[in-house]
Design a protein around this nucleic acid. Structure first.
Lengths: 150, 150
DNA sequence: TCCTATTGTTTAGTTACTAAACAACATTAT
DNA sequence: ATAATGTTGTTTAGTAACTAAACAATAGGA
């Protein structure tokens, strides 16, 4: 019974991950790979960000970010400018980059609005339980991370 | 408010995916990569399975399965036998493969039992709402898949 | 006997990384 | 002033985990 819910949850994660594997245009003239739209998303959420900060935000090494950013620069989606800190380079979206960012966000918003409607329609107890469930999952994942259990 | 729940959900998925990236021993003498333990898990759940069925179950091409299965054979975790169908080859776990399978399952069971306890402690309405929430997410993911929206 | 369908394999290519060495520059210590 | 240290970002070589496409092997039907 409860086991089934976990199974469904796992299936949903796999479904989401598979969707996330394909490249799309996001309203621009260049094909964007998952890693690229992921970085664009992170830049759009926090403009004038540095390579090091992106690296921390996305949990990827600086080298990896540098490579993806380089591709995005070549595709004309980002700009670079001198930052305020030592050796810092600020990364920001070009107009084209902003188009891709917003197109990507828009697609997420469809699901977002359905979920918003759902949460408005349920009672407080149910909502609290859903939050509680997420808390347990978070704790368990943290435990597995710390104990290197998997 | 509801947006925050979605954000937490996304963070949990990322956390889970990052855990899933590391190689582990799972109680045997060879290091098993994520793709390998994933295939072992699928074989253990459905013994005497074929390459084609594994391919369908895991959503990976036959070529990809063939490569991973080949590595697992080299590491001594699986056996092959003549199947009943045309050209079929049955894949099964060796003793060593079973050790890895059960060790992997055991780690998941810790979370499983916490979730079971949680679901026993909540009211029916909350449980129905959680199932309903999963249903909505499933529908939306299917819609995105079909419309190629992402 | 030839054609087709199916199974599994192999090969070449790709994405998305990591680790490590490196370069460029500023700050601090001697 | 010069050397050591600490940052930042880049480049390179290597790897995992695929896919697509060609292929081989085998069985059944026309």
């Amino acid at each position: 019974m409860e086991n089934e819910i976990l199974q469904v949850g796992m299936r949903l994660i796999n479904k989401y991950n598979n969707l996330n594997k394909k490249a799309h245009y996001y309203g621009v003239d260049v094909l964007l790979y998952p890693s690229e739209i992921h970085v664009i998303d992170a830049i759009g959420d926090n403009n004038d960000v540095t390579t090091t900060k992106l690296s921390m935000n996305l949990g990827i090494t600086k080298g990896g970010i540098s490579q993806t950013v380089s591709k995005l620069y070549g595709k004309g989606l980002i700009d670079k400018s001198v930052g305020s800190g030592i050796n810092e380079v600020y990364i920001s979206l070009t107009k084209k980059g902003l188009v891709a960012y917003e197109e990507h966000k828009k697609l997420h918003n469809v699901m977002n609005s359905r979920l918003s409607a759902f949460f408005e329609g349920i009672d407080d107890k149910s909502r609290d339980n859903i939050i509680g469930l997420m808390h347990i999952i978070d704790e368990e994942l943290t435990r597995m991370e710390e104990n290197n259990d998997f």
